[in-house]
Design a protein around this nucleic acid. Structure first.
Lengths: 234, 234
DNA sequence: GCTTCGACTGTACGGCGTATAGTTGTCAAG
DNA sequence: CTTGACAACTATACGCCGTACAGTCGAAGC
């Protein structure tokens, strides 16, 4: 109606765009409908602009994705308690990572396909390295373990049975059900353990067990290989 | 020249296609130029046919990818020595997985984006479950660890610094060099460990160390959590 | 008032997966 | 030797995608 109305907000805000605003919307879109659904055109529509408008703020879609990645890494709490034993610090670091990844359905998928050395990623890696150096590992081993820790968090989330962002819950349940039946009805002579473990392999009635055990497994491995012994000096 | 020449083989064989033949070419293409370079059109050109010809043998590109996935899983040796201790069996299983993934540059990327329960995958999982059940884990824990094992192999390969299929070697080296400099020239006050570990984080002068340590880390974790104790009863 | 320029629009290109319909070579039945 | 069926493939087209390139438009500075 009004030719000069400032923010009708009827459908979408129409203030000026910014990198941060675009990243916000992109993250929301990707979390809601899956990473594949995050296209320049869709995002532009959601923001009420032309696709090419985004190219003023980002050189390419890849740069946008880097922005998302940086935003996600930034959410990870890197303030571990220096007084607690290093294994506890490592654990809480991993738990913080997992918490963020679970909060953003698209995050694990996104981080999987990008090495992405962004400032926020640096901070998380720096903290992890510090913990491991404190545990007595040399730089090379610490680097290996830090990488492994970050990947462990990512795969724990993506490998949670039934995890598949961008799929309606009922469809996910249906796929899961079908897989379970498929496994359970394999020839028991040839695949006894597969048949036996059909349920835990395909379903995840207790996600907390999945994550707790995954973290336990990782931390136990690191402790076992620590130069200062499994429990550490402090 | 000849109107009826059977197989000129001047550029591409022109015998009849088959699922196996298509998968072969697809795998070769993906290994050579990266998974992103594997498009229906390119593959069809390489096979000397029209893109739509492939849809006679595969319902969709996804089904083709499943074929690739199955082929790759099939290459993994599942014949572990039942006489050796379970930790050794687990280790050799993981090593076989890693060997196959390293032989096929596209493999780890491919398996990462597909749960893919194919017959070949079943066999590998069955064997892994058998090993873990033999170690005393119950079905649920065995399922968790088996999943973790397979993922560990995949990420060990994709996280090898400098690993990036479909990129010419010189370009990879350039990216790697730039990342290393970027890390090394961060403010040492803020990122002391990152600066210190710039080389091991970005380069991989000894891939064998990377893989050996990765496997060690995983197996150590499993041993630490084994009900029958780290060394096991046999 | 005029220019400058940051922020955005319009149009177009090449590539993708694939639906739909049309074309062939082969081969058994008549 | 013809004929029809059918497996295997081709031709064309559609709607997506990322994005190059050029044009537009309002506010800010002079």
């Amino acid at each position: 109606m009004a030719t000069k109305s400032v923010s009708e907000a009827g459908e979408t805000e129409r203030t000026r765009l910014s990198r941060a605003a675009v990243v916000d919307r992109a993250l929301a879109l990707a979390d809601a409908d899956g990473l594949d659904a995050l296209t320049i055109r869709r995002l532009a529509t959601a923001l009420g602009v032309t696709p090419m408008a985004l190219y003023w703020h980002f050189r390419s879609k890849e740069e946008l994705i880097e922005g998302l990645s940086d935003r996600i890494w930034g959410e990870i709490k890197t303030d571990v308690d220096p007084a607690s034993p290093w294994s506890g610090q490592l654990r809480s670091m991993l738990e913080s990572l997992i918490e963020v990844l679970r909060a953003h359905p698209c995050a694990s998928t996104l981080l999987m396909e990008k090495p992405s050395l962004s400032p926020s990623h640096w901070a998380a890696t720096e903290t992890t390295l510090a913990i491991l150096r404190g545990a007595g590992f040399d730089a090379q081993h610490a680097a290996e373990i830090a990488r492994s820790a970050l990947w462990t968090g990512i795969i724990l989330v993506t490998s949670e049975p039934g995890f598949d962002p961008g799929l309606p819950a009922d469809e996910r349940a249906e796929i899961q059900r079908r897989k379970q039946i498929e496994l359970a009805s394999l020839p028991p002579g040839r695949y006894p353990h597969l048949v036996e473990a059909a349920v835990p392999l395909t379903a995840c009635d207790d996600p907390e067990f999945h994550y707790r055990f995954g973290v336990d497994l990782f931390v136990a491995g690191v402790q076992a290989l620590a130069p200062s012994g499994p429990s550490g000096p402090g």
